[in-house]
Every structure is written in C-alpha cells, then in structure tokens.
Amino acid sequence: MSVFAALALVLSGCGEPFLSTLTPAGEVAYQQYDLMILSTVIMVAVIVVVTIIFVLAITRFRRKKGEEDKIPKQVEGSHTLEIVWTVIPIVLLLILAVPTVIMTFDQADVKAMDEEPNEEGVRDALVVNVRASLYWWEFEYPDYGVITSQELVVPTDQKVYFNLIASDVKHSFWIPAAGGKMDTNTDNVNKFWLEFDSEKADEANNLFYGKCAELCGPSHALMDFKVETKSQEDFQAWLNAMQSAEEVAPADTAAAQGQQIFEQSCLSCHAVTPQDGRPEQARLAPNLATFGERSRIAGILDHNEEELKNWIRDPEQYKPGNKMTGTYQELSEEELDQLAAYLMSLKVEEK
C-alpha cells in the first residue's frame, strides 16, 4: 500500500499544459496557482513545527526509569505560551487571508461588461454567454450575433468576460489551465473573467480542455469542451468569418441527400449557421455550424465519420442520460452515410 500511496503522490503532480492547474496559462490561473503554493507552504510549515514539537515531547519529556514519581515543571497559565500559540496562527491566517481577499475582488471585477456599446453595438470588453445543458455547452458572443457549441474560441492576452447560466440542472464551468471553476445555475447568472497567455497557448498548441466540475448526472464526467486560442488579429478574423457565414451548400450528391435527412430529422433542434436568431429556450441542441472543423464528436469521440455514425445510432451508449432522441435512430446504413457526409461538410473556416 505504501508503494501505491507514493505513486499516487508522484502522479498527482503530473499534468499536461492543456489540462493542468499546475501549468497555469493565464492571469487568473497564475493567481490561483500562487495562492495554492502559499497555502501549501504555510500548511507544510505548520506540520513540520508540530511534528518537531511532538518528537521533542515524546523523547525529552518521556518517563525515565527511576523517575516514575517525579513531577515535571508545570506551566499551566503561562502567558508567554498563550501569546505565542495565539499570535502565530493569527499571523499565518493574515498572510493567507490578505492575498486571498485581494485576488477574490480582482477576479470578481466585471464592471467592464456593463459599459455602453459603441455605435455598432460592440463593447470594448469581449463578452461570452456560456449556457450549460445536459451534456453539452453553448457559447454565444452577444455583441457579434455568433453562437458556437462544444468549442469555445478566445483571443490571447485579452480579458474574456463570461456570463454563466444553466438550462436544466446545476453545472460548473472550469478550464483547469486557465483558472475559474464557477457554477452555472438555472435561476441566476454568475460572472467572471479569464485571460489566456499567448506563450502558454503556444506550448499547448492553442488548444485547452474545459470540463463540468459539478456532478450533474450519469454523463457528468463526459461533459467536456475544447478551448481554441487565437491571436487577437486571428480572433477578429474568425469573428468576421462567423458573422458572414452562410449555410453550407452540399458539395456532392451524398451530402445533398444527407441535408434532406437532416432537415427532416434534426433541424428542429440543431442550427447550421453561427447566426442562430432563435431564443434561448428554442436552442435545444448544439449549434452545428462548425461541426466539420471540430476536434471531437459529442466532446469525447474521435472526429471521423465512423464515430459520428456510431453516435447517431445510439447516443445513449456514449452519454447516458443525454436528451438526443429522434427518428434518426431508425436510419439505414446508406442514410447514415449520407447524413455523416453532410455534417462533416459543415465548415466556416477551411482547415
């Protein structure tokens, strides 16, 4: 057991730059990491001091042979000791509390979100509305009329402000490498900001992983999303492309037939353009405008037609408790091939 305990301790320090809180990739993550190190140092110091006192007590003051009846010097009511063991914890708490309070207020400062938009309806602050559902994520850029799902796109070296809400049950938005972890509730909007460091983004190949950090159902562990980082110039180009994107015209017969199947079986829940003007209540499933550009299917499967068909056949097998139901489960193999061909053709930016 001691071997396994040692291995668990060593492995707990392992992490990839795209998914580890121990490799911070933004201002919030740096602050949280520094606070974690500070609290760890304080706790270890306390443990070391207490251990030393304990060892001294059981060695120096143990009962010795021939001195069974000796009464050691009594120190009850020592003002010096009482002051020491009262002042030291207060000092340690202040050392931990001051930076904690400062960071808490700094990370909760979202006043920039309330600024008035310019003539084009755009604020200086980049705002993203995050909506969590069983078991997928929607990301809306309200100032630009753009909606994506499952893959969040953000600029580097710029604060990104988030409005967090849930459609059904409580979830929690967390990008381990960037910081955060804040609940998404159904009855109120939580707000906070993150910033992604360009150098750390390069180390992670501009792709980070996000997760739901609140137990929300049988597929909670599978409620992942991806975060793609871009330079500020590339991000603006991406926004422009999303704003001007139109519905993709099928390039071949199979995709055209797949489009017909999609319109009959899927269009009532899914959208295929980033400018989804439907109200939030009508957006029942992920926006598929950039489906062909994604790196995962349903956030967990490899991005290829075979896995896509497996997902369509039986989504319950891969994400138990999800809300994807419909007549598409009765499609023939030929129809599945056509639908997969159409979905894979849905792209805004060629990659």
Rank of each mutant, 00 (worst) to 15 (best):
E293K: 10
K181G: 07
Y30A: 09
T59Y: 12
E334S: 13
E115L: 09
A166F: 00
L22S: 08
F162I: 02
P274L: 10
F192V: 01
D337W: 05
V248W: 12
M344P: 05
K70W: 04
D224S: 05
T80N: 09
L239T: 04
A5C: 11
P155S: 14
G77T: 03
K191M: 14
L288W: 03
D337R: 04
F235A: 07
Q74G: 10
I165P: 01
D143R: 11
F61L: 10
E27N: 09
E280D: 15
P24D: 08
F208A: 05
S219L: 03
V49S: 11
L9Y: 13
T51F: 07
M324G: 04
C212G: 06
Q338P: 01
E138P: 00
F196E: 01
R296W: 12
E67W: 12
Q31M: 13
P142R: 03
M182T: 11
N287H: 11
S149A: 14
C216S: 15
D157R: 14
L343R: 06
K351G: 03
M1C: 09
L92G: 06
S265P: 00
K64N: 13
D337L: 05
T148D: 09
M43S: 15
L267M: 12
E27P: 00
Q236W: 04
N322D: 13
E119I: 10
P24V: 12
E333M: 03
K73P: 01
L339F: 03
F18M: 04
T290Y: 04
